[in-house]
Structures are given as structure tokens and as C-alpha cells.
Design a binder for these strands. Structure first.
Lengths: 343, 343
DNA sequence: CTGAAAGCGCTAACAC
DNA sequence: GTGTTAGCGCTTTCAG
């Protein structure tokens, strides 16, 4: 029904080998036959069958993009970057959402063994040792985004510096009692952002008060949740006069919760308490929340580069890239407590 | 390198046909040999190559999931539903983001001609006639989500009823001056939600004042944007004493903008103006915005059912399913103007 | 420059 | 029950 390479060959009065050569730009075809073949191709609306190509060439022209399923904006942006770079190359993106961390090994193992993809992109998930072993053994190219493993290429953001910049911004505004609302410290980004906070405070010769550094034990999303930010902010507000004048939340989503807690107590941001987040989520602009922007689209595109390089040259040394986040200043950290409303 | 069916056959001392039968549960294999084959399979960690299966069986075991790339929560939820149902079946989801409406035909045409997928899911995009023709001609199963075309299966939400319910909710609260902030009326959902609004007002014998019904000419995302809601709300607030006491926004994202405009004018929601949205986006809970919830996960799962049915039986009559949205009441439409803060 | 033929890994029809 | 074989649609030697 659908045209095959044989149909094209027949109508162009050539062998299928020639058709293949034309389509793959193998040069050694005369202008005349090339043109003839091309005409038939477009007349028949012929497109080679990807699976047949895959079988013959031993590659699939597709990659597996794996994300934790709770994901939103961050992943879509990464994805956009990946797709932009990949669509020219005619590589398909197979999407795999992981609902629970425990599923990751089993699910990916399956995919790896089926050699259904040429490479894997793994986002924001710790890679279990067992999985690492399998991937390594199978020599399947894999690049990690927003997570780290020393045996695999990885692309992430400099969270230490991000934390530093965020805190420094608050310091520059004249704040001294600066709190940090963190997530679960088993999360690497959380740990690093905290490190940045510490460094900035030390560089400014400010003491870090234990009562102002909150973290969670929550397992759920590693504590990167709005509720979490809300609860912790409530905690801080209980300090009364000793409460902070500024808060650095480890993520925007937590910052949203913090803003709600502040408002609920009848306080205003930034008049009473300045707030800065991290991630620069979609709604932070509208909300007026100052935040740290990560170059997601760029990260996505670079991810593709790494993957492609590794396809070409599997022996490449492991590559780790760190992007610098950018400070985006908005109303939530206006210098003097102007009366602004954050909605 | 990777085990093939021949390796398994050899080690199990059987023919490849038998291995194939075992793996495909073709029954006519003795318990003894079946067991032997299975042992070798697991010993070798053998997995059949999907592309080889695809070629031999003339199907790909993958579907194309197409979304407008601006997409966020709604699509992820649909997707979650689809994946849930599909992962058991071992069908891959190939993701395709369309950045501009004009690309849709070309991009999909390519995919269709390559018979790389068994079916297509198309989300929230008008399907151009030309594309419809191609898909129909190629007899490629396609199901539309959140959009409509009479020649294809479609799964959507009853927007008319949703609009009716939302408006009725405001009426029940005692409001009479109820405004509607709509999107671009070329969008079918926008048109339908407005229709619901009209019906509810008429049923309640309330006049619809032209000054209270705003729509946009914006092409960008059909006007479903925060800015849009913001601008329109500003418009409404200019009416002074004649301003509405309640607003039905055609989407949550527009409602967010409206809330911002209200706050900026020093007014409070719901004390001065009640607001209801549509979509029940992720942040509407935290924001306290009353909204209309669409059963996205269910829609996703049903989408898969349709697709599978059509794989089995291409001759099936066209199927259109409409889900009823559910009213989720939150602070933004509290009965009496309690003093609440929406952040 | 180009045709023929041998796979790529699997399914399914056909024999025994 | 089970082995054998002919495709599925393409790439890639190998001759010529």
C-alpha cells in the first residue's frame, strides 16, 4: 500500500541500491539517475521506513527522555531545547514518565535491553547503582540533566553559586537576618544551594542563626513543595521580633508557600519580609517573585550535543557541564518596603 | 553482542519458530520445551527487538502524542493517563511538540507517511483540512483530545455545561452583575464556555450587559493568557460603580491576571469581586481560586481505549465523548466577603 | 556509477 | 508440537 524502495526503484528503472544511495547522499550516483530517482520519490511520496533503516543500520534514531512525572515547566523547557535540536536530525523522542523512584531501574532496564533507543536522557533523578551498572555495561549513551553521577555525562546548574548569588542579593539590600527555607538535604541541589547561602553569609561576616535555617525531612518530592514552604515560613514567623527580614527559599514552589504564610499573618512582602526563590517558574513573573533563572532551553540543546557526540565517538571522556543561574529581580525583593501586592 | 532469537534457539536446542511461539504465547508448545526456552531467555536476558517485530508484524507499537508546546499541566495530566494505560501494553509514546500552528500539517504529514506510529493523539489543536485528508486517506487512527473534527474520534469536556455551572454558581451566591472574561471566540472552548454563561444567565432571567462580556482578538494562544485576563479586568474596573460583583474567566490563567488587576486597584477578592476560573490548574488550589475541573487523567485513559479499539477494528464508527467538568469551590467565591487574602 | 545479494531480528505460513 | 523458510523494507558489500 505504502510505497517502498522497490516501488521507487522499479518506476525509476534502477536497482534499490541506487535509490538508497541517492537518499543517503552517497555521491556516487550520476546527476541524471539521481534526478530521475528523486522525481519518483516525490511523485510516490516515498519515505523510507524508520524501522527498516533501524534494523539495517543497527540504530533506532530515537532517544528516551525520562522524567519524574510530577514535572512541569522545567522539563517542558528542557524538552523544548532537546526537540529543537533533534527535529533537524529526524530523531524521535520517546517519553517516559517515572511515577515512583523505585520504578526507575526496572523500567529503564527493560528499555535498555530492548535496544529500542540510541541514548537516554535522565532528568532530576538519582540514578541507582544497579541501573548505572547496566547502562555502563551495555555502553548505552546516557546524559544526566539536573542530577549527577561521575560515570555519566551530566548537565546541571551551579547551585552553590546560585545560592550564593541569591543570598548576596539579599545582603546587598541591607538585610542581615536572612533565613533559608530548604528542602530535604539528601537532595543534591538542596544541599548545594545551602552551601552557597553559607558562603555568602560568611563572606559578609554575618552569623548564621540555627533558628533561621530550616530544612525538611520530607521524602515527598524531596520537600520541594508549596506546603513545605508554607509550614516552614509559619515556623519562622513564630519567632516574633526575632523573625528574619528576608528569606531565601530553595525553590520557587516553596517560596509560593512562604508568601502565602506571610500574607496570612497579615504581613506584607517585601515590606515586612523580602523573599527570593530559585527556578524562576512560570508563575514567578506574574507573582513578582525574585528568583534564580536556569537556562533550561540551552541545557536541553547541550544535552543533545553530548548525546550526538557520544553516538559518534563512544570513547569520549565523561563530560560535566555546569551552567550559571541568573538573578531575576522582581517586586518580592524591592529595596525599601514599597507597598506592593503580590498576587 | 546483544542476544537474538537465534542465540536463544541455539542454546535451548530448538528452532527460532518455537522461541517465537513461546514468547508470543502461541500455546502449541510443550510444557517441557517452553520451560527450557524461558530459562535460556532469562539467562541471556533476551528481549526481542521492537524494530524487528515491527517490520515483521507491520506495526510499530508506538503512538504519536502531539501537543502545542506552550502546554503545561493539562497535557502532563492527559499524558499521565495515557501512559498509565499504555505501559502495560508496551507501547511507546513519541512526543511531538508543535511550536506554531502552521507546522502541524507538515510535521504530522511526515510522520504519517513514514508509518512510524500506529496512531496519533492530537491535543488542543484545530486540525487543518489538508491534514485531515491525509490521515483519513492513510487510514491512520487518530484521536483528538480537547478539540473536535467530525471525521475523527474525539474526547473533550462539555464546555457549555462547564460555563453554565460556573455561572450558575455565581448566581446561586446571589450575584447579578456577573461579567465574563473570555478568550478569542475562534477557539471552540471559548465559544462554548460563553454559550454556557449565556444560558445560565437567561435561565436566571438576568440580563447580559454588553459591557460585562469581554473577549479578545488576540491570536496568541487564542487569548488564554494571564496578560489578557489582567487587561480585561482593568477594563471592567473602569466601570466604577457599574462594575461587576463577580467574574467568570474562561480559563484559570486569565483568572490569575484578573486577580492581579483586582488587587492592584486595592480591591479584594471575594469581598469586592468574586472570581471563578476554568481548568483548575495546579496553582489554583494554593491561590484559592474556584474553578472547573476537567478529568484529565480519565480523558487520557479513554484516549488509549479508543486508539486500541481502532487498531483492532478500523471500521468502528466515529466516537465522540464529552466529559462533565466539576465545580471546585474555593476562597475566591466565598459566600460573603470574608476577608481573605489570595496569594 | 550501478545492479545483485546478503543480512538486520523477528513473525507466520508451511511442512512434517 | 516443532523446524524451516519466506518475507518485512532497508543498508551495504561485492562485482562488474
Amino acid at each position: 500500500m505504502t510505497a517502498t524502495i522497490y516501488d521507487v526503484a522499479k518506476q525509476a528503472s534502477v536497482g534499490i541500491g541506487t535509490v538508497s544511495r541517492v537518499l543517503n547522499k552517497h555521491a556516487s550516483v550520476s546527476q541524471k539517475t539521481r534526478k530521475r530517482v528523486l522525481q519518483v520519490v516525490s511523485k510516490l511520496n516515498y519515505r523510507p521506513h524508520p524501522f527498516a533503516i533501524g534494523l539495517a543500520r543497527q540504530r533506532t534514531n530515537s532517544i528516551l527522555f525520562t522524567i519524574p512525572f510530577f514535572a512541569t515547566f522545567f522539563f517542558l523547557e528542557i524538552l523544548r531545547g532537546i526537540q529543537k535540536r533533534l527535529s533537524d536530525l529526524d530523531v524521535s523522542i520517546i517519553l517516559l514518565g517515572i511515577n515512583h523512584p523505585d520504578q526507575i531501574t526496572e523500567t529503564l532496564r527493560n528499555n535498555i535491553h530492548r535496544h529500542r533507543v540510541d541514548g537516554i536522557v535522565l532528568c532530576s533523578m538519582k540514578i541507582p547503582d544497579q541501573l548505572a551498572k547496566i547502562a555502563l555495561f551495555k555502553k548505552l549513551p546516557m546524559v544526566l540533566v539536573d542530577t549527577y553521577h561521575k560515570k555519566f555525562d551530566s548537565i546541571a546548574v551551579n547551585n552553590v553559586r546560585g545560592g550564593y548569588t541569591a543570598t548576596k542579593h539579599l545582603l546587598d539590600l541591607g538585610h542581615t537576618r536572612i533565613a533559608m527555607l530548604n528542602a530535604n538535604l539528601r537532595s543534591v541541589p538542596a544541599k548545594d544551594r545551602f552551601k552557597g547561602y553559607q558562603m555568602a553569609m560568611m563572606d559578609a561576616h554575618k552569623k548564621i542563626s540555627n533558628s533561621l535555617v530550616l530544612k525538611t525531612k520530607s521524602e515527598y518530592l524531596d520537600g520541594f513543595t508549596r506546603e513545605n514552604g508554607y509550614e516552614m515560613m509559619k515556623e519562622l514567623l513564630k519567632l516574633g521580633p526575632k523573625r528574619p527580614t528576608a528569606v531565601f527559599a530553595a525553590s520557587d514552589i516553596q517560596a509560593y508557600g512562604a508568601l502565602a504564610a506571610i500574607a496570612e499573618m497579615g504581613l506584607r512582602c517585601p515590606r515586612d519580609i523580602a523573599v527570593i526563590g530559585f527556578d524562576d517558574l512560570e508563575l514567578s513573573g506574574p507573582l513578582g517573585l525574585t528568583s534564580m533563572l536556569q537556562p533550561m532551553s540551552e541545557m536541553g540543546m547541550l544535552t543533545v550535543e553530548r548525546l550526538l557526540d557520544r553516538f559518534e565517538n563512544p570513547g569520549l571522556p565523561i563530560y560535566h557541564k555546569t551552567f550559571e543561574p541568573t538573578l531575576i529581580v522582581r517586586r518580592s525583593t524591592l529595596p525599601m518596603g514599597k507597598i506592593t501586592k503580590l498576587v
